[in-house]
């Protein structure tokens, strides 16, 4: 592996996010532990280097695009929508997306109800559909306050919900993950599934945002 961050000169990753400071300094104790643990696991025959590389690649391949495809299908196919709301894991598997052994529950936003997802105990997240969770999802502030004052938290994300909209907060567990199906934006009647998927943001599927308008 030649380099872990080829564009580090400007301190921004290819996606424009800053790297953690600890990546730009010398080798840390915990990085040494990662290398040592990985090599010992390989030497002891627990895993192979190829399996580790394949797992990292599989993770890199996961992105909110998969969740967005599921949402766009639900917007355009009423039968699929019903199946998704009835059994999220099975409906995603139908599209070729393996959500893992956890139960996936899809919850739908509409004019009267807004759903938002949190994991108060740790960082459970539908990672197979959305990729790895963002830093804020794992923060103390999000974990503690989302179940206490969800409207205030949503306002910090720029989402001010009218008082007559019910806010439902879903607390994930190790065995159960939630996917928010955001409301389909107005003015998208003529759009196909692929174009619609572009409107579905990661944050709208966590419930801290809404789908983009075309």
């Amino acid at each position: 592996m030649p380099h872990d961050h080829p564009d580090h000169d400007d301190h921004l990753s290819p996606s424009g996010h800053p790297y953690r400071p600890d990546q730009d300094t010398g080798l840390s104790y915990w990085q040494v532990m990662e290398i040592a643990t990985r090599e010992l696991m390989i030497e002891k025959g627990v895993v192979t280097a190829g399996e580790v590389a394949a797992q990292v690649e599989a993770m890199d391949a996961r992105s909110p695009a998969q969740g967005a495809a599921v949402v766009a299908r639900a917007w355009t196919d009423p039968d699929f929508r019903e199946r998704l709301l009835a059994d999220g894991s099975a409906a995603c598997a139908e599209m070729g997306f393996d959500v893992g052994p956890m139960r996936l529950i899809a919850v739908e936003n509409d004019a009267a109800t807004h759903n938002v997802v949190v994991c108060t105990l740790c960082s459970c997240y539908p990672r197979n559909l959305l990729g790895l969770p963002p830093d804020w999802y794992k923060s103390r502030a999000y974990r503690s306050r989302t179940v206490r004052e969800p409207r205030k938290v949503l306002a910090e994300f720029g989402l001010d919900l009218p008082e007559d909209v019910t806010v439902r907060v879903h607390d994930s567990t190790a065995d159960m993950r939630y996917l928010v199906v955001p409301a389909r934006p107005a003015g998208t009647e003529g759009m196909d599934e692929v174009a619609l998927a572009d409107l579905v943001t990661r944050d709208s599927m966590i419930g801290v945002g809404i789908a983009k308008t075309p």
Binding site: S15, H17, T120, D135, W136, R140, R143, S144, E156
Partner: peptide
């Protein structure tokens, strides 16, 4: 920590 008090949700993300 669900339901406890805390400050604003941090906005930064990193790859």
């Amino acid at each position: 920590m669900g339901g406890t008090l805390a400050g604003p949700v941090p906005g930064d993300e990193h790859d």
